[in-house]
């Protein structure tokens, strides 16, 4: 098994951007060190040869959990909008959107 490259500042800057977090230079430095240590520890797992082992995402084998197509109660709009930072015309107001949904 090939070892993945060690985690560096550029990786942390990249994932911070993907996760919509902004980091100061100091934070970037500190987080890089901390995350690198965790990833370093995870190398025992990364190095394992488990090619023929199936992944487990659900610990228990449940299947076909379905709901009948019957309408149920919705929330009151006032209740929903009361929690919002900003609203207008019964809708959630957000700053302008630059760029489209992918």
């Amino acid at each position: 098994m090939t070892d993945p490259a060690p985690l560096g500042r550029a990786d942390v800057a990249h994932v911070a951007a993907l996760a919509r977090l902004s980091l100061t230079d100091d934070e970037l430095e500190r987080f890089t060190g901390q995350l690198a240590r965790v990833i370093e520890h995870a190398r025992d797992v990364a190095a394992l040869d488990v090619g023929d082992v199936l992944p487990t995402s659900h610990a228990l084998p449940i299947r076909n959990v379905l709901r009948p197509d019957e309408p149920g109660p919705c929330l009151e709009r006032d209740v929903v909008l009361a929690q919002a930072p900003e609203t207008e015309d019964g809708r959630f107001k957000v700053p302008r959107i630059v760029g489209d949904a992918p």
Partner: peptide, 23 residues
């Protein structure tokens, strides 16, 4: 950030995928 990294393209198999197999 750690989780974003473990799932991101190029690292998924080495980290998240591997961890699921270890499970």
């Amino acid at each position: 950030m750690l989780g974003t990294y473990a799932l991101s393209a190029g690292y998924y198999d080495a980290y998240y995928g591997k961890a699921q197999r270890v499970r």
